[in-house]
Amino acid sequence: MNIDGNDIQQFHEVFGKVEQEVSKHIIGQKDVIRQVLISMFAGGNILLEGMPGLGKTQLVKTIGKAMDLGFSRIQFTPDLMPADVIGTNVITRGEDGISRFKFEKGPVFSNIVLADEINRATPKTQSALLEAMQEQTVTVGTSTYKLPQPFFVLATQNPIEMEGTYPLPEAQMDRFLFKLDVGFPSLEELHDIVMLTTTSVESAVEKVTTAEEMLKMRAVARQVPIAKPVMDFALKLVMATHPQYEHSPKITKDYVRYGSSPRGAQSIISAARVRALSEGRYNVSFDDIRYVAFPALRHRIFMNFEGLSEGITSDTVISQIINSMKME
């Protein structure tokens, strides 16, 4: 893909337009919107966690429309089977009267797949998404099918009502670039949400970019330079999530069972590049790393028993790690 100076300079503009368009239809949640966009431009999957009714599904739908991307939604339930997600071979009779197996694509074959309440499906069904999320392919029998590009999985999960749910295994969690906490809107935001959704006026979402343009922007984002001190900072940050690392802060050593995998570092760097461009900068800064560290690492840090019992969150750990590090 040929990238020139214009493409680079346009990134900020396009990103801003998408953000602006989505913000028109999603009240509040500015940080969530931005982080979802960063993750999408970085080519990653997103796990959205929040109470029901906070607009998670609406957010994903709106982004899909603004970017002119295909959108499909899968409501995960305990009886959902992998074939319901990825598709299955069905017997069809051809014009010549001979019956053949034909692969019927599942809802995963879309640009944006919303896996709603992903933790309600069984691990078997959850893991059906693993290949799609990582390799962006689907294998049924002996055939492997490429998923349409760009492809993103945006999964949601409910932090309450844990009864009858199947928490995502670490391997699957690691496949999400970001885990975002969707918070409750403020009073003003709530007012706007109510006003917007209870009137008869329906505002259409404007398409501000295309799939192709988005792929180009992804390529641009990969070229953003990162200075060695900044890169070192990111890598040390990931290392510091491990209790075995000698320079880890006390909180890590005391409360963390497992730290981030190398995917965590990859996620930070990819996302930081997009964040830099979204700010109109052409290099990654310490601020970018700090900004993306929370969503990129919070689902990759697993607390030990003491941590869980004392209510230490991974965000607290990340925050203390960042504070303990010098930026040189």
């Binding site: 990238i3 070229q223 200075a227 060695k228 001190p229 900044v230 290099n283 990654v284 800064s285 601020d287």
Partner: peptide
């Protein structure tokens, strides 16, 4: 915001 450090590291780079 690390613009100068990055620019210094890229002093021999002539990419767009």
């Amino acid at each position: 915001k690390e613009r100068l450090v990055t620019a210094l590291e890229l002093k021999d780079d002539n990419s767009p």
